[in-house]
Amino acid sequence: MTSYRFRWINRRPAGRGSLLALLPFVAIVVAYALGSHARLARNPEDKLMPAAATMAQSFATLAFERDARSGDYLFWEDSRASLVRMGAGLGIATGVGLVVGVAIGMLPYLRALLASLVAAFSMIPALAILPILFIVFGVGEVAKVVLIVVGVVPFIIRDLSQRVGELPEEQWIKAQTLGASSWQVALRMVLPQILPRLIDALRLSLGPAWLFLISAEAISATSGLGYRIFLVRRYLSMDVILPYVLWITLLAFAFDSGLKWLRRAAFPWAREEARR
């Protein structure tokens, strides 16, 4: 008896395929280890692909020993500085984006007034106006936070106003027949249904937000994850850069998973996009 040959589009991994997902990660680690070993065998002073032990040691120095000059634990100080900027930037962007996005989506007059402006603003590459921000706000924290806000807010506003517009016409009418005022429609109908979309928009904004943060820190800062990476670049310190990149990736991943979890926990009624 010949076994049935499924089409490739119908073949699925057994279980949930989590082992399969792990495979590429393992492959990269193994490839790096082999490459690093080969290079170090030829030249023990090689800085390009440091051994895991070297990275661990450099990382431990930054994380668990006080810096001689500032007296800080550099790694934690960098993380704190970056996270504060990120939190402030995303927090302000979320608040502004939600209020303006919902208002534009709900009120035809406001839409006529502002929609084109927002569309035009969202086309400005945020990094191009970074010099302006430094000139206007100085090289302190404000400019970095504003960069994140400016970079992320137009997207959130456009996305949310569009989502508000996508709420079915029937719902708008129904809410009015229940006697709701514009304010009550916003509060009881639009806002609750838009919050999960806000989380989606925020998740999509995380990538650009990190990009803006690290760029701003690279150019002008005295601490921060981006600052550190660009500082040690001068000494080809891959043993510091790689752990930092890993850490940033981990933070971004944690943000993303946290938001995803929040969406599920807080809005059980909202279905996520269908997955195969």
């Binding site: 719902q171 129904k174 027949t177 006697g179 009624w269 909202a270």
Partner: peptide, 19 residues
């Protein structure tokens, strides 16, 4: 404009999914 004196039941999207 629609108001509470006139109730409506539509064919679809008639209830609020978040409640």
């Amino acid at each position: 404009e629609p108001g509470p004196d006139r109730g409506v039941v539509f064919q679809r999207y008639s209830v609020f999914p978040h409640l």
